[in-house]
């Protein structure tokens, strides 16, 4: 089948970008979306033109590298699907598509469809962990974890850090991403000792990195390829408020005002 692609081309972070139109015949319905872009890139390379830069790695929907907007939707039209797992059978012959990078102040464009998502790492570094040095762990079965809790923690931990939630949010908020980590670790007894500190530090860092506030729009949950739930955000707000109210000293030390 034939697909018409309008792709955002931008040489680097300091040059302006623009949409460029490409026509692609010979698209096979079993191809993944990225395999279709491979075909386009091979054509461009053969012509000596600069191929379209996009990020990808595992192509199995797990590493979180891939992600861009397809017709204004992060990762494209299929629910619960990263763009690397999106297949061309979901499109029709002659479809015209618009591909753009994730847009958010905290995710500056690097080139074409590639953006800088390192803000996510910095938010994790601010407190998205359990402080346990190698070798100091107790026997694994010494702390039982209620099965449902473990399952809910796993639901939240399934986040792949792709950033689609930020791109989909009208406020470019990272609340779904941040809250998923806060919920994952906070639900487990192992994460309890640092629950307050974690919530305060991560939430403050998120704001500092230029992500917006959550206004309960719900776009993030709808778009999340891993089905991470918006209820995590409620939990994050609760943890944050509780920590700030109960432990003013501690939250001040963590950087709150």
């Amino acid at each position: 089948m034939k697909i018409i692609l309008n792709i955002w081309r931008q040489k680097n972070s300091s040059s302006p970008g623009k949409m460029v139109r490409y026509e692609l015949d010979k698209v096979n319905e079993h191809m993944s979306f990225l395999e279709m872009l491979d075909v386009l890139n091979e054509d461009l390379a053969r012509k000596g033109e600069d191929p379209v830069a996009f990020e990808h790695d595992c192509r199995e929907g797990i590493c979180g590298c891939c992600g861009f907007m397809v017709n204004g939707i992060a990762h494209g039209p299929e629910r619960s699907t990263t763009v690397c797992q999106l297949h061309m059978r979901h499109f029709r012959d002659g479809d015209e598509l618009w591909l753009e990078p994730f847009r958010a102040k905290a995710f500056p464009v690097i080139k074409d469809l590639v953006v800088d998502r390192s803000a996510f790492d910095r938010v994790i570094a601010a407190g998205g962990y359990i402080s346990i040095n190698t070798g100091s762990a107790p026997e694994a079965n010494s702390i039982p974890v209620e099965r449902q809790r473990a399952d809910r923690a796993m639901d939240a931990a399934a986040c792949i850090g792709c950033g689609a939630c930020v791109a989909a949010c009208p406020n470019a908020s990272a609340s779904l991403f941040v809250s998923a980590k806060i919920a994952h670790l906070g639900l487990l007894p192992q994460g309890e000792p640092e629950r307050d500190r974690r919530a305060v530090r991560m939430v403050l860092k998120m704001t500092e990195e230029g992500f917006g506030y959550c206004t309960n729009t719900g776009e993030c949950e709808a778009i999340c390829p891993k089905g991470v739930k918006i209820e995590n955000i409620a939990r994050m707000h609760r943890d944050f408020t509780r920590a700030v109210a109960l432990y003013r000293e501690a939250s001040k030390a963590a950087g709150a005002h």
């Binding site: 962990y129 762990a137 079965n141 473990a150 670790l185």
Partner: peptide, 22 residues
């Protein structure tokens, strides 16, 4: 065996039985 201890302590959400064990 130490790896499992370490990872559980880090918050890796391994599958569990109803009794709460791994």
């Amino acid at each position: 065996v130490d790896i499992i201890d370490q990872c559980v302590a880090q918050g890796v959400p391994f599958a569990r039985e109803y009794g709460g064990t791994l």
